[in-house]
Design a protein around this nucleic acid. Structure first.
Lengths: 229, 229
DNA sequence: TTGCAATTCAAACAGTTGTATGAAACTATC
DNA sequence: GATAGTTTCATACAACTGTTTGAATTGCAA
């Protein structure tokens, strides 16, 4: 077997197992059994278990970030340099939501692995994850262009809440399905993306006050305008 | 030393360590060292490590649920049987947010432990966690009373998003602080509660379509009315 | 004090983990 | 087809895990 085949078999098996069962209870022996390779192959090809996890994570990070930025760039080109706030948020949460909730179980492994990584945060991943902030900053910048008058903090809260809803929906989809007795359709991925984007955009455009949070959370309906679009 | 002292020393030490470092890398030896008791004491008093975790979790679950329901009951009594949607959501996310983000580091251990439990979900906890759905149903029922005309699925989505924002804010507070370069004030707990409640209430009252999600995520501003209040 | 149960303790246990080793098998170049 | 370099393999290793054991200690009732 060529060396690359073993390498990528390990990567694929590890990603699948980590995505399904988490980092906590997947051993190297589980991985090599799934990949049909020898136990020592992991240390031979990757050096250590942590380095295997790290490689998995950086690969997928780059990939996810690229998908997001592609979608953002497309929207900005379409709007001659300036994307709408909905389009920006959609570029942020769309790829992950589609990946994790979509019907394509095979392709979703990568997305589900990333969700695991965002949840469990084992040491090798924690070390890398700081770079994600730079990536998110690009979306904050785009949002600033879309809503030039907005208070900076408000933009970050909106971005944060969009990610909150997306990630939590993925993590707790079984619970939500059970709680709602099937009334919330977790298979309607496009609808969920719309919903998350809609709520986050609403939070950004209406609701929250400019600099200080409102003393009480009353919805300022009248101010829900599109002056900045 | 009286037997109860050892027991509660173990509980306190375990909760503290789990809250700070997660279930993944806290061993029984870490716990007994922190509690200054003998290694065998854990198995003597609790039977097994899993039973220790389970006891910790059920205790705190009951406690958190009671806090939430108290706050809900207070609001309902004040409103002569019917609480507003904001008050309901506030009762849902307030206790946890205050516990985890509040300045009282000591008292927050319980809340941070619960967040860990909601994140990592080790087997002993996973077995218990299904009961939480019954607890959330009480809030769904209160929401139904507050917004009688609303589609059921919408209520569940609103409840779900409220929890999403609260939990994710706690989990990622360091990242949000760093991303926003301190512009988002994570110490203003009351403001954060207001903010989360406000966005979730807005999602419930405006925005989302009645039964089927919109084909495209354009915010239906015109329909942002309060017909059901 | 005596006796008995409850509790603590040091030590060991069996199992699992990631990693290392050195020989065997393979691959490609000359 | 011999040689050198790469990759696989079975096996062993040391460290760590939760748990158990049986003796020592403690606390308390008679």
């Amino acid at each position: 077997m060529a060396s690359d085949q073993t390498r990528s078999a390990i990567l694929a098996a590890a990603e699948r197992l980590y995505a399904d069962r988490g980092f906590g209870d997947v051993t190297l022996r589980d991985i090599v059994a799934e990949a049909n390779v020898n136990l020592a192959a992991v240390n031979y090809h990757f050096g250590s278990k942590d380095e295997l996890i790290a490689e998995l994570f950086v690969t997928r990070s780059i990939q996810t970030n690229r998908e997001r930025l592609n979608e953002l760039k497309l929207a900005e080109e379409k709007g001659s340099g300036r994307a709408s706030i909905e389009e920006i948020l959609r570029a942020l949460v769309g790829p992950t939501l589609r990946g994790c909730l979509g019907p394509d179980r095979e392709g979703s492994t990568a997305a589900r692995f990333m969700i695991r990584a965002s949840i469990e945060s084992v040491p090798p991943i924690r070390r890398i994850k700081n770079r994600e902030i730079d990536h998110l900053r690009k979306f904050a910048a785009a949002m600033r262009r879309a809503l030039p008058g907005r208070d900076e903090a408000e933009l970050y809260w909106g971005l944060h809440f969009a990610l909150s809803m997306a990630h939590h929906t993925i993590r707790e989809k079984e619970r939500l399905a059970k709680l709602s007795e099937g009334k919330c359709d977790l298979n309607d991925v496009a609808g969920i993306v719309d919903r998350v984007v809609g709520v986050a955009a609403m939070a950004l455009m209406g609701g929250a006050p400019a600099s200080k949070p409102a003393a009480r959370a009353v919805i300022p309906q009248g101010r829900l305008t599109r002056q900045d679009l």
